[in-house]
Design a protein around this nucleic acid. Structure first.
Lengths: 118, 118
DNA sequence: TTGATGTATGCCTATATAGGCATATAATGT
DNA sequence: ACATTATATGCCTATATAGGCATACATCAA
């Protein structure tokens, strides 16, 4: 078996480095497909395919202008990733480390208090 | 071709839902492998394999105690994901939306000013 | 040593999928 | 209508990998 389809799980869609690159480029503003081709060093069909995956998970939106299709990032689709990973932010954020220190102090005080209702 | 190895790219390692589940469980505290088996509904060998992948990208640490191996989350490994996805936070965060409003206002004022150094 | 328990590894199969390449589709200009 | 440009789709191959299952390895108990 392989894994949950890239077109269904945004975590998986974005696990492909090329697709992250595409989002990063599009972060700078709306662009047609052919703009991405030289920037990524990929053939046009592959770029279109990556864009399709990103579109299916909602990470990009499209707009037709003449014969061009202008793609743009839709960051909302990435929120689940942010939400999930943020629960681990405690590990590296100074802000949380300081919070942990305070909580630790409170805990110690409680223990000195003699109550052991854990 | 497939994609960057799960054992090399933390984005890819975590693109597998089972592995996110494992991290979520371990977030509650250190646990031996066999604790995860019933919780995930996976066979023990598959759990060990997922843990191996997580260990290779540094997302978990191990500690031997007797014949058990206690695994725990190492959130630091997830920071690159947080950093990357945070650049898109503008899309959904009220905080950034308000900032955008202010910037928009400043821009309008500048235009009314007659200067067009854009 | 022997047996039991906890975990890791190896082999196998099915499957998803990235990229190569040809071609289809669509819009525009002449 | 025809050519040109922009993009999407289809077919192909190679490859990574998730899970099934047997088994190796390691640690502890008797």
């Amino acid at each position: 078996m392989a894994r949950v389809a890239t077109t269904v799980d945004v975590f998986n869609a974005v696990a492909e480095p090329r697709r992250r690159e595409i989002l990063d480029v599009l972060g700078g503003g709306e662009r047609p497909v052919n703009d991405l081709v030289p920037l990524l060093g990929l053939a046009q069909p592959q770029v279109s395919k990556h864009l399709r995956v990103l579109r299916e998970v909602g990470a990009v939106d499209v707009r037709d202008v003449g014969r061009q299709r202008l793609y743009r990032v839709n960051g909302h689709a990435l929120k689940p990733i942010h939400d999930w990973v943020s629960t681990y932010e405690r590990s590296w954020s100074e802000r949380f480390e300081q919070l942990d220190e305070v909580l630790e102090e409170l805990k110690q005080e409680e223990q000195g208090d003699g109550s052991d209702d854990d």
